[in-house]
Computed example of a mutant assay.
Amino acid sequence: MVSGRIRHIAVFTLKYPVDSTEAENFLADGAHILSAIPVVENFEVLRQVSSKTDFDFGFSMEFTNQEAYDTYNLHPNHKAFVEERWKKEVERFQEIDFMKQDF
């Protein structure tokens, strides 16, 4: 089992133009809903600036441990956001979960 702090990043492209009202609403709603889940720390909405990838946005957040991350994934607000918004409005995505590597 994973132990230690986890940084979860979801990079994604929406079905809307980057500068559209719909994209802004999705990002704002995601920030409001997901950052309110008690185990979520350091939530950030990110905009891609590199030409090395074609994803447009990212949500980044941290969890104190695997238990907190599991709690987030099972939280009713997260599940509702995924079903009602993410699956309908995200064109494609990649999720990445990191833990600090100690040497």
Rank of each mutant, 00 (worst) to 15 (best):
G4E: 11
S60T: 08
I6D: 07
N73E: 12
A23S: 15
L34W: 03
E62N: 04
K87S: 14
A10P: 02
W86I: 09
I9Y: 13
R5P: 01
Q101Y: 11
E84S: 10
F93H: 13
P17T: 09
V49H: 11
E24G: 06
V39R: 05
Q48G: 13
L74E: 08
D56T: 09
D29V: 01
H32M: 10
N65K: 04
F55I: 06
K15N: 14
S3V: 11
V39I: 10
T21M: 13
V40Y: 05
V82Q: 12
H75K: 09
F59E: 02
R47I: 06
Q101H: 08
R92K: 14
M1C: 09
V11K: 05
V2E: 12
K88P: 05
K79C: 13
T53W: 11
V45G: 01
N77P: 02
E89S: 08
V11P: 05
S60R: 14
F98M: 14
Y69M: 08
Q48H: 15
V49P: 07
I9F: 15
V45E: 04
V39K: 10
T53R: 11
F57K: 04
D97K: 05
A10G: 01
A23R: 09
Q48A: 13
F12Q: 01
A31Q: 07
S3G: 11
T71P: 03
A28D: 10
H8D: 08
S51Q: 15
V90A: 09
L27K: 10
N65H: 01
A80F: 11
Y72Q: 10
T53M: 15
T64A: 03
K52N: 15
H78A: 07
N73W: 08
F57G: 00
Q66I: 03
E83H: 07
I9M: 12
Q66R: 08
I33S: 03
M61F: 01
N42F: 03
Y72P: 13
V40P: 05
D97R: 03
Q101A: 12
G30M: 09
S35F: 10
W86V: 14
Y69W: 15
F57T: 03
L14R: 00
R7T: 09
N77S: 02
R47H: 12
Q48N: 15
V49F: 10
Q66Y: 00
D102T: 07
H78S: 06
K100V: 02
P17I: 08
L74T: 08
M99C: 03
A31L: 05
D70T: 02
N65V: 04
T13C: 07
H32I: 01
V18Y: 07
E44Q: 08
K52R: 14
T53Y: 04
D54S: 02
F93Y: 15
A80V: 07
R85F: 14
G30A: 15
L34E: 00
Y69D: 04
R85L: 13
F57D: 02
S51W: 10
F12I: 07
E24K: 06
S50M: 00
T21S: 14
V2F: 14
R5M: 06
K52W: 11
S60N: 10
I9W: 15
H78K: 07
A28H: 05
D97M: 06
S50N: 07
F81K: 08
